[in-house]
């Protein structure tokens, strides 16, 4: 079991998961999002290659209204 902090909340995963699977499972496919993993940008082209590791910290963001 691994623990990942996603947007400030800790989540558990029972088996290894890559970022593409994470995006798919959370209905984020095709959405305009950007992901940072442990302070580094994860380019969309690397979603399938990068597997989440215990203790990882993800930020998943979108554009919202602002001035």
């Amino acid at each position: 079991m691994i623990h990942i902090t996603i947007n400030g909340e800790t989540r558990q995963f029972n088996q290894p998961i890559n970022i593409e699977q994470f995006v798919d499972e959370n209905n984020l496919i095709g959405k305009r999002i950007a992901i940072e993993r442990n302070g580094e940008i994860v380019p969309r082209s690397q979603f399938a290659e990068q597997f989440l590791a215990d203790g990882d910290c993800l930020e998943v963001v979108v554009a919202v209204g602002g001035g």
Binding site: I6, N7, G8, E9, E25, N26, N27, L28, K31, R32, I33, A34, E59, V60, V61, V62, A63, V64, G65, G66, G67
Partner: peptide, 20 residues
């Protein structure tokens, strides 16, 4: 046009409209 960047709701509101 300015926009802000914020955390998205994970696993919720899958059909929420997007500003973009």
């Amino acid at each position: 046009i300015t926009v802000a960047i914020r955390r998205t709701n994970i696993g919720q509101h899958a059909d929420e409209p997007n500003l973009l």
